[in-house]
Structure formats: structure tokens, C-alpha cells
């Protein structure tokens, strides 16, 4: 089943009189259950791509269908709703709220979708269990290691059952052991059916995924399945 489709997407930024084309006629389809890496050097347009896929930004031109819904012309408020219900973000710098505990951070997306407090609590707990942090639910981010923080962020991304998880350099701030842990979680979630799109500039991290899309100067220059996939955990095929 088709999860998202981009048709003739253009993104232009106006800087004074200068107009910069960040994305130039992008066509891309991601199906349910895929695990896609977006690669490219800085300035290649991969961050812009991520912002548009994550509904943080709208394309200048073109069609973006997310679960069959055209979100390319949505206003701020509707985009916020889409981000809340259909997208789960995982960022390089974790982006947890420092004054809140792990479970409060995970509950936050449900606060904005008006989930009753009891259900919210249960769901957040379940999501933290899924990433192996059931013993750390009342810790604040500064009491957790980098890998643990990123796992809280993954739990937060998962908690509203999004259509897709957008990970922006999720291992960029992590050591190799934590990277391994995070990729193991991603692979496990993917095996359970979660669609994941991950931006990275590290080729070895990309090999954990199933498909690599490479950007250069706002164009897709390569789109190929991963042939020699790295498997992080046991029982993963």
C-alpha cells in the first residue's frame, strides 16, 4: 500500500532578489512498511525534503499525498494536525523538553490531540516499554544518556500511531554503541510494520535501512534498494 507520494515537487526560497531552488521536480513514492534512507551532502536538498515530508513546510509547487490525502496546500493549523496524527519526528538533538520527565515528554503529542489523561498515561508507558525504558519513565532528559534520550524521542514519535516516522540524523549525536541500539529499535519497529524515512549522511548507518535515495542539488540522483543490509538485532531477517 502506498504511504506517501510526491509528484513534481518544487521548493524555492526567495532571499532578497535571489531565488534558490532547493528541490527541483521531485517524484518519490514510499510504500507501507518501507525503511528509506535519504542521503546527500549538505545543500543537496535533503533537509528541505525532510521538512516537506514532515509537514513542517509546504512545497512551492507540486502534489504531496500522505495516505492519499493531499497535504501540499494545507494551512498552518491543518499541517499541525497532520504532524500530530500522522507523523512522528526523531531529531538529531533529541528535542525533548528539559523540564519534563520521560513519560511527560512522551505524553505531549497526546496532550495536543486531547487524549484523556488515563489513556495517555497507559499509552505513553507502553511506548516507553517498547523502547526498553520502562524503568526510566520518571527521569528527566538530563538524567538520561544520549541513547536513552533518543529512545524517549522514538517513544514520543510512536505514541500517536503515526503513518510514518521521520528521523533526521537520529544517530548524529550518538556513539557507535548507542547508534547500534537505536538502529536495532528502528529495524524492529519496521519489522512490525512501521514506515520509516531517515535522513543521514553516514553511508554505514544507511545500510541498516532497506532503500537509499540520494539527493544532489535538489534532484534525486539515485534510488536503489540496499543490497548488503546490516542487521542490528537478533531475529531480524
Amino acid at each position: 500500500m502506498e504511504m506517501l507520494r510526491l509528484e513534481n515537487i518544487y521548493k524555492q526560497y526567495n532571499q532578497g532578489e535571489l531565488s534558490v531552488t532547493a528541490l527541483n521536480n521531485i517524484n518519490l513514492t514510499v510504500n507501507e512498511g518501507e525503511f528509506v534512507s535519504i542521503m546527500g551532502s549538505s545543500g543537496s536538498g535533503k533537509s528541505t525534503m525532510m521538512n516537506i515530508l514532515g509537514c513542517l513546510d509546504s512545497p512551492t509547487e507540486g502534489l504531496y499525498l500522505l495516505e492519499g490525502e493531499d497535504v501540499s496546500k494545507y494551512n498552518d493549523s491543518k499541517l499541525a494536525e497532520v504532524r500530530n496524527k500522522k507523523i512522528g519526528f526523531v531529531f538529531q538533538s533529541f528535542n525533548l523538553l528539559p523540564k519534563m520527565t520521560a513519560i511527560e515528554n512522551v505524553e505531549l503529542p497526546m496532550v495536543y490531540s486531547n487524549v484523556p489523561i488515563k489513556i495517555r498515561h497507559e499509552k505513553a508507558k507502553a511506548a516507553l516499554e517498547k523502547v526498553g525504558l520502562e524503568k526510566r519513565i520518571h527521569h528527566k532528559p538530563n538524567e538520561l544518556s544520549g541513547g536513552q534520550r533518543q529512545r524517549v524521542a522514538i517513544a514520543r514519535a510512536l505514541v500517536n500511531n503515526p503513518a510514518i516516522i521521520m528521523a533526521d540524523e537520529p544517530t548524529g549525536n550518538l556513539d557507535s554503541k548507542s547508534t547500534f541500539e537505536i538502529m536495532e529499535i528502528f529495524q524492529r519497529l519496521n519489522d512490525e510494520g512501521t514506515t520509516i524515512v531517515m535522513v543521514t549522511h553516514e553511508p554505514d548507518v544507511a545500510t541498516y535501512t532497506k532503500r537509499i535515495v540520494t539527493f544532489k542539488d535538489g534532484n534525486i540522483i539515485n534510488d536503489a534498494p540496499v543490497t548488503e543490509r546490516t542487521i542490528a538485532g537478533e531475529g531480524v531477517n
Partner: peptide
């Protein structure tokens, strides 16, 4: 952060 996880303006 709040906006990215679905807070409206």
C-alpha cells in the same frame, strides 16, 4: 518542539 509534534499556533 511543541509545534513539530502537533501544537497549533
Amino acid at each position: 518542539i511543541r509545534k513539530s509534534i502537533g501544537a497549533k499556533n
